[in-house]
């Protein structure tokens, strides 16, 4: 079931899961809720590079992983100086 770039997709999906800190169980449950058909055991085996999955299942898994990542609280961002000036002006009622 080797479709083009299957291995690259798997490796990058695996990296995304590892990096996000989600457990295999959490990933599988979300994948399942998006109508994923492959069992948890096999999904884990796929991610570890032990067995292939059909291309569509790989995409549903990618979607599940991305939705989980999108749902994470965003990282803190640094404010720009003018943003702070505007924010404070607004709070003081000047703007």
């Amino acid at each position: 079931m080797a479709f083009p770039h299957a291995e690259e997709q798997r490796a990058l999906t695996y990296a995304a899961v590892t990096d996000s800190g989600f457990s295999m169980g959490e990933v599988w449950l979300h994948y399942f809720s998006l109508s994923g058909e492959v069992d948890e055991y096999e999904v884990e085996a796929y991610l570890e590079g032990l067995m292939p999955m059909p291309p569509l299942e790989c995409d549903v898994l990618a979607l599940a992983v991305n939705e989980l990542i999108d749902g994470l609280p965003p990282r803190k961002r640094a404010p720009f100086s003018d943003e702070l000036v505007r924010a404070h002006a607004g709070a003081d009622g000047v703007a």
Partner: peptide
């Protein structure tokens, strides 16, 4: 509760399909 939620979501995918 989580499982019911997940089954409901999966169900919706089935309906939409």
């Amino acid at each position: 509760t989580e499982l019911r939620e997940s089954l409901r979501a999966r169900d919706l995918v089935g309906i939409a399909k």
